[in-house]
Nucleic acid binder design. Structure first.
Lengths: 224, 224
DNA sequence: TATTTATGATAGTAATACTATTATTTAAAA
DNA sequence: TTTTAAATAATAGTATTACTATCATAAATA
């Protein structure tokens, strides 16, 4: 028996559960590929259908529109990251080490996880960096939020916030610092590769520098 | 004579300079209104033309596409912010006070500046929060960057970076910290209003709290 | 007054974002 | 094993978007 990590998804994101069929899994697999290659704006259900070898209508049976598909994919990754954090910090008792580990996970391009067959996590990480904020930077953010579309993201930030409080129970902004860590990890990565003068890592383009920067930023604040 | 602040814009953003005609000024004015009301995704040149009382073709004579128009609007605001920072910190000699002032400017909804006739800065601030990152989170970011579309943004970050170094010449990440301040100021504002559990300001929804958070974050790091 | 230039009005095209219909295949239930 | 239901493929069609092109007219300039 092959071990599989199953991320439980919000059922109102899809019309038919993509995990339950070959076509569904292909929709996820190829949309990740296409969004990564062409960017979310240029991504269409028609192109996706062609890539899979099905028809547009076929895709529409699974997802109402490309926005929900994006939210699905991104939610999946937040869920997977949450699992990674839980798994990789399981035996870490020192909260400072734990938080450092979390920052490393958030800021590092992961290797493809063999436990999730049809998904390439390293590409998902790239998508999160470039397209992640488009999931919530919309006019429907409040409706989407009511439908719990951002729960995996909020859960993850909450987990990070709790670890921050473990480091310093008196720190006043655990939630804001948590969301800042997550977002800045991605933003600095994007800037490093695309608008390098907005970072101090333009020469090396090394992700580890983002980790060092974030560690400095975070622990200066909470250990003050 | 009425005093007017003129922000010099990158000419390759437009086909015809919108500052030079009534129609052009209306394109800017109404696109700000429409993007704010409907969001960038739902914003079209047809709707814009209808709002102005001109035709689609009329708008296309000024801007190639809505992406360039968005970049134009956002660049204008970065330019205006840079001017504000220069103006409001002119006589501030203490770099710490200067940086605090800058953080306040970045994190606060400005009042409509009477010096810029057809532009409402408080709405622009909202657009920056919700749509700002869409200007660079695209597949064409490298081309756009080569055309200097992001120069006003980079200049502003540079200014902030310089002030950081004035505070502490030995601080290692002035560029990254500068872009972090700018982005986090907007992100925390968006979260506070739309995904409040990602912040610690959900009760008050008061922008001043973002300032306090950022001051704490920034000065812990650079005064360490 | 002649001429350039900006605008308005209208038309048209390819692509996008869907919905609907019917036939066919596949899988589950009887 | 047959019946039946469910999923998919194939095709068509619509409204909207993102443009381009053409021509007439009004306003500004030479």
């Amino acid at each position: 028996m092959k071990l599989e990590v199953q991320i439980k998804m919000n059922a109102s994101l899809y019309l038919r559960d993509p995990e339950q069929s070959e076509l569904g899994k292909n929709i996820i697999k190829f949309s990740i590929e296409l969004i990564h290659k062409q960017g979310f704006e240029a991504f269409t259900f028609k192109k996706l259908a062609e890539a899979i070898g099905t028809t547009e209508a076929g895709v529409y049976r699974y997802f109402e529109n490309k926005h929900k598909l994006l939210v699905y994919i991104i939610s999946w990754y937040w869920g997977w990251l949450e699992f990674q954090i839980g798994y990789q910090t399981k035996n870490v008792t020192n909260p400072v080490s734990k938080l450092k580990k979390v920052i490393t996970i958030l800021a590092t391009t992961v290797e493809d996880d063999i436990m999730t067959g049809h998904v390439d996590e390293s590409i998902l990480h790239q998508i999160l960096i470039s397209e992640g904020s488009k999931a919530y930077l919309t006019k429907q953010v409040n409706q989407d939020n009511k439908q719990e579309y951002f729960k995996p993201y909020k859960d993850l930030c909450n987990t990070v916030g709790d670890i921050i409080l473990e480091c310093n129970a008196k720190y006043k902004y655990p939630h804001s610092l948590a969301s800042t860590i997550v977002e800045v990890a991605h933003l600095q990565n994007f800037f490093m590769h695309n608008l390098p003068s907005l970072t101090d890592f333009s020469k090396s383009k090394n992700e580890n520098q983002i980790i060092v920067f974030l560690n400095d930023l975070v622990f200066s604040s909470i250990e003050k």
